[in-house]
Design a binder for these strands. Structure first.
Length: 256
DNA sequence: GTCCAGGGGTATC
DNA sequence: GATACCCATGGA
């Protein structure tokens, strides 16, 4: 498969957490799959069509980048990290991932998700699959995974969401889908935007964390205001693919 | 010891 | 609608 994907930039941009470097490339664990990808984008362990969907090769990458290339700041990030892609994740694993993410850091999110897979997920070929909906069914064990006060939210989501629920969110417009997600305990505006952007094809979503707040205040002359003020500005400014701009700016700001 | 990390719930105004 | 404080935890 010939495709423009920079694997390290894509994996290290804080959208996915269960992967590790191998002797030649990376091994990615996601949902019910575990597969390897080499620097020249050779994939082993999943079908080409599945890989194409996961890496969003169906997006018109160049056209999208052109549409968000609005100023010198984003332009620099687009050039420096060319090949960074949004991924199309499994909504269930993505939801649990970002429930784990609140008020913590990426190394810890990785640790907790690996613990969850190890504790609740089925083992296959020496790797742990991510548990299915309904399988994260022990609150005490969930706390032992290191999730702290987030455990009750994960536990509740495990008892609440369904595959049809996520499929419905893909069909709803951005605002309605976000509203539905935020009915779940532990999911506020930021976590909802991450789930929408990384797993539900809502590419206009623009999550604001501390790094994006820094980017907007330091590089876009914005004042610290409310979440929706900053996010709505960026969605309006960058347009229907604002989520791609967010991902480039996030990765850029963290690596300056 | 203090601050920070891909935040959200709740009380209070 | 906004602000203050709490929730757990590990690393810098």
């Amino acid at each position: 498969m010939k495709a423009l994907v920079n694997i390290p930039h894509t994996l290290d941009s804080g959208q996915i957490f269960r992967y590790e470097a191998t002797q030649n490339g990376f091994r990615i664990h996601h949902g019910r799959d575990s597969f390897t990808v080499s620097p020249d984008f050779k994939i082993e362990g999943i079908s080409q069509s599945k890989a194409s969907s996961f890496f969003r090769l169906d997006d018109n990458y160049n056209k999208i980048l052109q549409s968000i290339d609005k100023d010198q700041t984003i332009h620099g990030a687009l050039q420096k990290y060319h090949g960074l892609r949004l991924l199309r994740q499994d909504p269930w694993e993505c939801t649990i991932s970002f429930l784990c993410s609140s008020a913590t850091n990426i190394p810890r999110i990785k640790r907790d998700l690996n613990n969850i897979a190890k504790t609740f997920g089925q083992e296959k070929n020496g790797f742990h699959l991510f548990p299915k909906i309904g399988e994260i069914d022990n609150l005490e064990k969930l706390k032992e995974c290191g999730t702290g006060f987030r455990a009750k939210y994960i536990y509740e989501a495990n008892n609440t969401v369904t595959k049809p629920f996520f499929n419905k969110l893909k069909r709803l417009n951005y605002g309605d889908a976000k509203e539905k997600l935020m009915e779940l305990p532990g999911i506020g505006p930021k976590v909802a935007d991450c789930i929408l952007l990384f797993s539900l094809d809502h590419l206009s979503a623009f999550p604001i964390d501390t790094w994006m707040e820094k980017a907007l205040t330091e590089n876009y002359n914005k004042r610290k205001k409310t979440y929706s003020h900053l996010s709505n500005f960026a969605r309006d400014y960058f347009g229907e693919y604002a989520g791609y701009a967010q991902q480039f700016l996030y990765h850029w700001k963290r690596n300056i």
